[in-house]
């Protein structure tokens, strides 16, 4: 009874589709549908609630949250005339700007790397998919470049993995906590939940999340991008005014 109530709360705002009775299923909802970046934004915790139908002891749950794709250029530093210069650039399109994964067991114990690669789950598999056109276009070994992208994302807390970050509760309910760092990019996010049985995905579901600038942040950002020349003029006039005020305020003393 209590479980049903929690389930009903967790599913608020997410239409529950009726699934065949016996088939294993999974549903999920995030605590937020939009995350607003305001002037005091310093990261945010998100909770994903979900429920499974027909969860057995052999089943594991994987939760993935991925951010909007960004085009990247990765360069290797090479020493020339004693100084380090960026060289040998490779371009990667639509690399996820944010990628967090939470699992009920360490990922390598849930499924084989081949199975993960096939379903595109996990950072290595995701990066490999985005790198496919680049690999086709170049004869070079791209794996150190992909590792660099992964390192850079981890440094900024934009790529994260939480082994056992999915908490399985009673009655087939589960909960995963994900954190958005201060550098969170704006855009459309997709949260995906996967139900694994015997190392294979048997059910999945996705939920959407939108990260957007709000309030003053949004006003300034839109001003700067929609009327860039007018914004530039505004910045200059404001600075001159500030200089004038400073001059008047301090020269009277």
């Amino acid at each position: 009874m209590l479980a049903a109530l929690v389930l009903a709360l967790a599913l608020q705002g997410q239409p529950v589709q009726s699934l065949p009775q016996e088939a294993p299923g999974i549903v999920a909802a995030l605590t937020h549908e939009t995350v607003e970046i305001r002037e005091d934004f310093a990261g945010q915790e998100l909770i994903l609630y979900g429920a499974t139908r027909g969860l057995t002891i052999r089943d594991e749950i994987v939760v993935v949250l991925r951010g909007p794709g960004r085009d990247l250029r990765v360069m290797r530093k090479e020493r020339n005339f004693g100084i380090w210069i960026n060289s040998a650039p490779l371009e990667f399109d639509e690399v996820p700007s944010y990628y967090a994964i939470a699992t009920s067991l360490p990922l390598n114990e849930i499924a084989t790397p081949e199975e993960l690669a096939n379903s595109g789950i996990g950072l290595p598999a995701t990066l490999a998919i985005t790198a496919a056109p680049t690999i086709e276009a170049t004869a070079r070994d791209v794996s150190p470049y992909l590792a660099a992208i992964a390192r850079s994302g981890e440094r900024n807390n934009l790529y994260a993995s939480a082994q056992r970050g999915v908490e399985v509760l009673d009655g087939g309910l589960f909960r995963a906590s994900l954190s958005l760092p201060p550098l969170t990019p704006v855009g459309n996010y997709v949260a995906e939940v996967y139900l694994f049985r015997d190392g294979r995905v048997i059910a999945s579901r996705s939920a959407r999340l939108r990260v957007e600038k709000a309030g003053l942040e949004r006003l300034i950002f839109e001003f700067a991008h929609d009327w860039p020349w007018f914004y530039g003029l505004f910045c200059v006039v404001l600075a001159m005014l500030a200089g004038y005020v400073a001059n008047v305020a301090f020269s009277r003393r």
């Binding site: 990765v74 590792a147 992208i149």
Partner: peptide
């Protein structure tokens, strides 16, 4: 400029 960098690769935004 001259010391060996901690990360030998640099990731930059590209395009737009």
């Amino acid at each position: 400029l001259v010391i060996t960098p901690a990360d030998m690769f640099v990731v930059l935004p590209h395009g737009e």
